[in-house]
Design a protein around this nucleic acid. Structure first.
Lengths: 162, 162
DNA sequence: AGTAATCTTGACAAATTTGTAAAGATTCTC
DNA sequence: GAGAATCTTTACAAATTTGTCAAGATTACT
């Protein structure tokens, strides 16, 4: 269970765009510079975000990328779903070799239940965090994210390692 | 953010091994048959589980794979960590292009905070589920997993879709 | 000892994901 | 309208993950 690079880079680019003051938005070369990615790669990632409706592009000399909505209205769930799809797709069982027969016949697919429930919790956490929450300096963000998560989950005795 | 096929198949194989009654354990051809995977693929996955210390193998005519501990002592966290690694590795930031300079200089790496907190919650959920919890028929498992998760997380108004 | 059933390993092939390159389309400025 | 700056798209290359194959090692049974 990993985050893909598209998710990582896409979210980073979105944060940069949201932080940007200039009304023209951010250009591909600027994002490339800010995040240390190649321009071609930024272009590809921004395309996904644009098709997903999270950013809009203006071409030409004063062109660039802007958010389509204010950052407080964009949830992390929406972002990560656009960039990487859901953790557990309902076709999942069918795409895996041989499992369809096993699942439908014996209906003994306990694994699915785990995936579903993990996804449910992740979805809920990500729904409660917006792009705006990520715009502060790292330490502030960390505090907010921790609080938000703890407010929702009853982890009392657990510390974050590292 | 996806589960890898190794995680899916590995967990399935473990469940089969745990369910198995025969004291000799399950052989590769049997697991292959049960889960609809090729024998070569099963062999590869079982190797990971064996190196990870979750199963032990016996060679020869009465050979097969058995669990190294009782299923109630094997957590899903342990299993998925063995099969797929952590969601967020601490070297993560360094492995991504260009980010090291940005991270260390501006310490403005809000994304990391999200990953860390999501992982914290997933880890906690997976720690509370053991292999034994997955051995019942699907509907029973579903009930148990739901309850266990809900007991820990305050989702009140959310229903599982599908 | 020989044979069959099994696990074990390393090399390779296929598929998927990730990243790059090049040519095109649009807009602004002059 | 020419040119520069920008986004857009498609095709391709590289890297990673996934899956297969074949040869070897171990054990039990006769």
């Amino acid at each position: 269970m990993k985050f893909s690079t598209i998710e990582e880079y896409g979210l980073r680019c979105l944060i940069q765009i949201a932080k940007n003051e200039n009304e023209n938005g951010l250009t591909i070369p600027e994002l490339s510079e800010l995040e240390g990615l190649s321009e071609a790669n930024v272009a590809k990632i921004l395309r996904i975000l644009r098709i997903g409706g999270l950013v809009e592009a203006e071409r030409g000399q004063n062109g660039g990328y802007r958010l389509t909505k204010p950052p407080e209205k964009i949830t992390l769930r929406e972002i990560l779903y656009t960039l990487g799809g859901k953790l557990f797709e309902s076709e999942f069982c069918n795409t895996y070799t041989g499992i369809s027969t096993i699942c439908t016949n014996s209906t003994d697919c306990s694994v699915r239940s785990v995936w579903k429930n993990v996804q449910r919790v992740i979805d809920e956490i990500l729904s409660r965090l917006t792009l705006k929450d990520l715009l502060a300096p790292e330490k502030v963000v960390d505090k907010v994210v921790c609080e938000r998560v703890e407010n929702f989950v009853s982890i009392n005795d657990l510390k974050i390692i590292q």
